[in-house]
Structure formats: C-alpha cells, structure tokens
Amino acid sequence: MEYLVTRTTRVPDGTPDQAVDEVRVREAARSRELAAAGHLVRLWRPPLRPGEWRSLGLFAAADDGQLEEVLASMPLRVWRTDEVTPLAPHPNDPALAPVNAGTEFLTTFTISVPEGTPAQAAKDTEAREARRAKELAGQGHLLRLWRLPGRSRALGLWNAGSPAEMQAILKSLPMDPWMTVETTPLSQHPSDPALIIG
C-alpha cells in the first residue's frame, strides 16, 4: 500500500546546531536504508516559509502498522509530526513513468459531476479522461495517479516545464469543467530516492 506523508519538523529552541546536524546526517542515512528496502519511494519539498521544515514523502508499507514502524524509525521523528494520507490504486495510474527534466507537481482533484448530467455523458467523459491520462503519461507528464479517501477525489504526480504548462495540461483534461484542483509545485529533496538510487 502507498501513503503520502506530510512531514513537519520543529526543532526545539536552544537545540545546538551540532545536535541538529547529527540528527540530519542520521536521517539521510536512514532514508537511504528505507529507500533500498522499498519503503521510501519519493521525497519532495513543497514551497516553504522562512524557518519552516516540511517535506512530502511517498512511502510504501504492507499496512498502517508497518508504516508507523517505518516512520518511527527515522531519527528526525523526535522533532517531527507526520500527517498520513492512504492512497489507493487509480484506474488511470500510469505507474511510475520515466521523469522528464522539469518541475514536479502534486495535484489534488475533487470531481463534482453537475446535477442532471446524463449517465451516458458522464461515462463518455470518464472514458475520454482515461484516454487523455494515457496520452499525458506517454508524454512523461502524468507520472502517478491515486484515489484519495472521500468521494470522487484523486491525487496526481505530474511533470511540466513550468507552472503555466502545468495549468495548460490540467485544462486539457476532459473532466476539467467538473474538477476543483489544488496544485502544489515540488522541489528536490536531498534524500529523495530518485536521486539516491536513480
């Protein structure tokens, strides 16, 4: 099972810089071990405010209990809180496609089909959406897609050359008129397994 984990670290005031550096070194080493074991799949930094330590991680574990063991084994957990979102397979997931040069983005989709839409029209739009998702995956733009808890919600991992290109890609989706989209630009995290292993 895969999970998106929002990790927020708050170092207590007065903690010596040397102690922080030592924990960060141990965290990087543990991240490499978890990546090699297949538990840490990806790691990103979302936009941060000054002094904020936050990262987004894609983790794999057999169940919630194993995920908690994995997260608890990480040295920064002494100062960090983790917000876990379980991810479920999505029928349009291209499974980890090769990454093009560009910026990665996470998108949260909430779909609301307008009341009164004929069932066949909704079904046809879903089929066109699936075809478009495959096209975008083939072009290296759509990297992953998961279902989120709740009704008609999904999480996407994308690659685009710029925020404007990302916006144009989203507008090209057949379901765009029915979607509310939250887009988060991502930057590389030094412990991202894609950099360590790939």
Score class of each variant (00 low, 15 high):
E135M: 14
Q18S: 14
L67K: 00
G51D: 10
P89V: 12
S31N: 12
Y3C: 01
T8A: 14
D124P: 10
P163Y: 03
L43H: 08
A88F: 14
R45V: 15
D82M: 10
N100L: 14
K171P: 00
T184R: 00
S191F: 02
P46T: 12
P190K: 01
W178R: 02
A127C: 00
T8N: 04
S162M: 04
L173C: 05
T125Q: 09
T183D: 01
E22H: 04
A19C: 05
G150C: 01
S172P: 02
G138V: 04
V41G: 06
E135D: 15
T180F: 00
T108H: 11
L71G: 01
I111W: 07
L34R: 13
L4F: 09
R32K: 13
L96I: 00
R49K: 09
Q167F: 06
L148Q: 13
L4K: 03
R147I: 00
I169G: 01
G65Q: 05
A36H: 11
E104M: 10
N100H: 12
A101M: 08
A29I: 08
W44E: 01
H189R: 07
R131T: 14
D176C: 02
G140S: 11
L173M: 15
P91S: 08
T108L: 09
R32L: 15
G140P: 10
W158H: 08
L40D: 07
W146P: 06
P91T: 08
S172L: 04
T81Y: 04
N159I: 11
A130M: 06
W178F: 10
A121M: 09
P46K: 05
Y3I: 00
G116H: 10
I111D: 09
Q66N: 03
G198I: 05
D17H: 09
R32V: 15
A121P: 01
Q66Y: 01
R30W: 06
D82Y: 08
L96Y: 07
M179L: 15
T183F: 00
T103I: 10
P12V: 12
D93H: 11
T85K: 01
P94A: 09
K171Y: 02
I111H: 08
E33F: 03
V84C: 04
D124Y: 02
H141G: 04
W53A: 12
E2G: 03
L148F: 09
A164L: 10
A19P: 00
D93T: 12
